[in-house]
């Protein structure tokens, strides 16, 4: 089980300050809410809840691959559950998962026209992550940034182009890594309910992620997937677009949430937390009962945490 912070920061004074401020607020239930790795709970197979295709590399061949998990800044800050779900899926598949120091891939700067900051953050990522066999990201958007846009950012730079390209070549979005690299064809999680899946834009169009999540969802026991209308149309998030042009964004996400409701699914899944926060926020505002989760949570069988934007059922925090 998890322990309280022992100090994540080497700046001594800051560390003490952080401890003082942070420790009392760490809710007990929450620490317990993330199941330990390879847990018998949540309908998971205690040893390995993943199923490989007979044609894929034998599992021994991928044992011991050192995989760096880049959680993304949104998962890191808003919903660590997704990071643990991703780690569980990877470890169940025999990978050695590490979580190097990380902040942001630089996409907000890149898409805001600030190439200098984008490059600085990309370089920070490269330096920290290039020593691993693979880098896995539970987001098509941030994955796409590293895979498609890092090489573009450093194109023509004799010192960095090669490093950016090498990192891009070993970086994968989580679901496509499980299916495409590890040859996973199914999981042994269970989920009792009807879900609909939103194809997030970058994953879909930059990385070609469309059939893979559906393939893995099909293996979840008890889960029924219903496709909503326009499942491949943008949810209106677009990073800073959602606040810069909030009215247009609102109209787009309203159509999306209406399509989600019309699908009559009880749970909405997607592979990008940005999109999920946007759609969950709209559904919540509309008073919808639909639960919103990252697909990794369902595949890893970690669905005992409250859905995105939902309160914990019990008396969770009493400040």
């Amino acid at each position: 089980m998890f322990r309280k912070a022992q100090g994540c920061c080497r700046v001594a004074a800051s560390k003490r300050l952080a401890k003082c401020l942070l420790r009392p607020l760490q809710p007990a239930q929450e620490r317990g809410s993330i199941p330990p790795r390879i847990s018998p709970g949540g309908g998971l197979c205690p040893v390995n809840n993943l199923v490989s295709s007979p044609t894929s590399a034998p599992s021994a061949g991928r044992q011991g691959k050192r995989v760096a998990l880049f959680a993304t800044c949104l998962v890191d800050t808003m919903r660590p559950t997704i990071g643990f779900a991703a780690a569980k899926l990877l470890e169940d598949a025999g990978c050695i998962v590490e979580v190097p120091s990380q902040t942001c891939c630089g996409q907000p700067a890149y898409n805001s026209g600030d190439r200098k900051t984008a490059k600085a953050l990309a370089l920070q990522m490269i330096a920290e992550f290039e020593r691993f066999d693979y880098v896995v990201v539970p987001s098509g958007s941030c994955g796409g940034m590293i895979i498609k846009h890092y090489p573009e950012l450093f194109a023509g730079d004799p010192n960095l182009a090669g490093r950016a390209e090498r990192l891009a070549a070993k970086t994968f979005e989580l679901i496509s890594f499980l299916t495409g690299v590890l040859g996973i064809t199914g999981v042994s999680a269970t989920f009792d309910g009807t879900v609909t899946y939103h194809d997030s834009c970058s994953g879909l169009r930059e990385l070609g992620i469309q059939s893979q999540p559906r393939q893995l969802l099909a293996s979840v026991q008890g889960l029924r997937l219903v496709e909503m209308k326009d499942n491949d149309v943008c949810c209106g998030f677009g990073g800073t677009f959602a606040v810069k042009y909030s009215e247009i964004s609102d109209k787009i996400v309203t159509e999306k949430s209406n399509n989600v409701e019309a699908s009559e699914a009880g749970t909405l899944l997607a592979g990008d937390l940005g999109c999920l926060l946007n759609m969950a926020g709209k559904l919540s505002r509309q008073g919808s009962k639909v639960e919103v989760r990252h697909i990794a949570e369902v595949l890893a069988g970690i669905t005992d945490t409250p859905a995105i934007g939902k309160a914990a059922p019990a008396q969770e925090v009493t400040p």
Binding site: E30, A280, G281, R285, G309, V317
Partner: peptide, 15 residues
């Protein structure tokens, strides 16, 4: 236009 989900409370890296 929309609600903002409350973060879980602790960051992934710290956890």
């Amino acid at each position: 236009h929309r609600d903002l989900a409350v973060p879980e409370g602790e960051t992934f890296q710290a956890k």
